[in-house]
């Protein structure tokens, strides 16, 4: 089983496909869930404190907006953990996003430069493309150890 980082990191479609193929999808909602269910932190609802943007300094410099660094504190560790990545190059708003496109750009960059196998995909626009989309993901995931 490989750990696969997906982009957008909130894409339910990609996460579902990865899980169905017997791998573990690394997704932002899981990182959020860890905080939401942690009773120790008192900053509801997401329980993100000013410490997160500081942790995000590992991925972006101090002159990068705090919202990006805070998001990276959640997503960055997932990228570090990943054995492979699937990137949807042109996701629409319904596919999911980090809310901030600068974060999206940084996430894509970090996945692509990590040196892991990465599958680049275009969002399918019709039934034929959708079948090809799923087939390519299936083939990619089957190739992972």
């Amino acid at each position: 089983m490989a750990k696969v980082i997906i982009y957008p990191t909130t894409s339910l479609i990609l996460a579902d496909l990865v899980d169905r193929m017997g791998h573990k999808a690394l997704v932002a909602p899981e990182a959020v869930r860890d905080r939401v269910t942690n009773p120790e932190i008192k900053s509801p609802p997401l329980n993100i404190t000013p410490e997160e943007p500081k942790k995000g300094l590992k991925y972006a410099a101090v002159d990068v907006p705090s919202g990006i660094r805070g998001r990276m504190a959640l997503i960055g560790p997932l990228i570090e953990e990943a054995d492979a990545g699937i990137i949807l190059d042109d996701p629409g708003v319904l596919t999911g996003c980090a809310g901030c496109n600068r974060t999206n750009e940084l996430v894509r960059l970090l996945i692509k430069t990590k040196g892991i196998p990465v599958l680049d995909l275009k969002y399918p626009r019709d039934d034929t493309e959708a079948r090809g989309f799923v087939a390519r993901i299936k083939a990619f995931l089957e190739g992972l150890k």
Binding site: S43, T49, P53, S66, G67, I68, G70
Partner: peptide, 11 residues
């Protein structure tokens, strides 16, 4: 807002 939650300042 954009980024308030992720900046840890929503509270």
């Amino acid at each position: 807002a954009c980024g308030a939650e992720y900046s840890g300042i929503q509270r």
